[in-house]
Design a binder for these strands. Structure first.
Length: 264
DNA sequence: ATGGTTGGTAGCCAA
């Protein structure tokens, strides 16, 4: 079972790249972030034509997440509980049936949080991370394969940036941000790429500006966290870096994991 | 070097 996540930075601007990548990479389940469109304008027909079921949680202009799946959805849940007035579309969960029982997959788009001097930005990010920790802790109690995939907007460690010193005043690399991410992981999640990909320069994002891609000035902020029941079945993880060199690329690239969920 | 680039859309806004 190949499960991937990709911050596509506007699904309508990127539909050609998305269709090409779906055929090339052939993931079973895809978590998209920053679709930047309402559900009615999501290009679902082209994607369904490739054999995917499509569930979206869209919003006008900003944010928005989606899950594409070759498996039928048993259940879909939208939104992260814990803050009533939060109207950002940043979180959805799909539930699927496999030979090993239920599989839960989350597509999440964690708030960027910049600038750190603005409470409505950075405070929102930190509260969102607390809400995610609470939600994830409750889900872990189910003891099922659970995949939390998405754009976390967190650089976990200095090794996850080409130039860590460039990010010291950025919300993605604040000590308190990194601490919240470690707290989430410490509940029992495995950072799939961290544990499988041992190469340096394992980045998932390169800014459009200042020739970041050409200089390989990247950061690793798109993560796939696995519950113990999923981590036990992890066979590979990869960053599909070549997609960043395509025409009109997203500033993020797909990250994929392979789980062996065949019957015991 | 407080720059520069992109998407969606009329908010210089978010990233």
């Amino acid at each position: 079972m190949k499960i991937a996540t990709w911050n596509i930075n506007g699904v309508r601007a990127r539909i050609g790249n998305l269709l090409h990548w779906l055929q090339e990479s052939a993931p079973d389940i895809v978590c998209l972030q920053e679709i930047k469109t309402m559900d009615e304008q999501f290009p679902r027909l082209e994607i369904e034509a490739l054999g995917y079921h499509v569930e979206t949680h869209g919003q006008k202009s900003f944010n928005g997440v989606a899950i594409l799946s070759k498996l039928r959805f048993d259940e879909v849940n939208f939104g992260l509980p814990g803050e009533g007035e939060d109207d950002h579309a940043r979180f959805m969960e799909g539930v699927f049936s496999t030979d090993r029982g239920a599989l839960r997959v989350v597509s999440l788009y964690l708030p960027n949080g910049n600038p750190i001097t603005e409470e409505r930005k950075f405070g929102y990010k930190l509260r969102w991370m607390e809400r995610l920790e609470r939600w994830a802790g409750e889900r872990l109690a189910l003891e099922e394969p659970l995949v939390l995939a998405g754009d976390y907007n967190v650089i976990p460690e200095p090794a996850d940036a080409k130039n860590p010193e460039q990010w010291v005043n950025d919300a993605l690399f604040q000590p308190v941000t990194r601490q919240a991410f470690r707290r989430l992981c410490a509940l029992g999640f495995t950072d799939a790429v961290r544990n499988v990909t041992h190469s340096a320069d394992a980045y998932t994002f390169w800014d459009y500006q200042a020739g970041a891609w050409q200089k390989n000035n990247g950061i690793r902020i798109d993560h796939v966290l696995l519950s113990p029941e999923a981590a036990n079945r992890l066979t590979s993880a990869s960053i599909e870096k070549h997609v960043r060199a395509w025409e009109k690329p997203s500033d993020h690239v797909p990250v994929a994991v392979e789980l062996d969920l065949s019957a015991a």
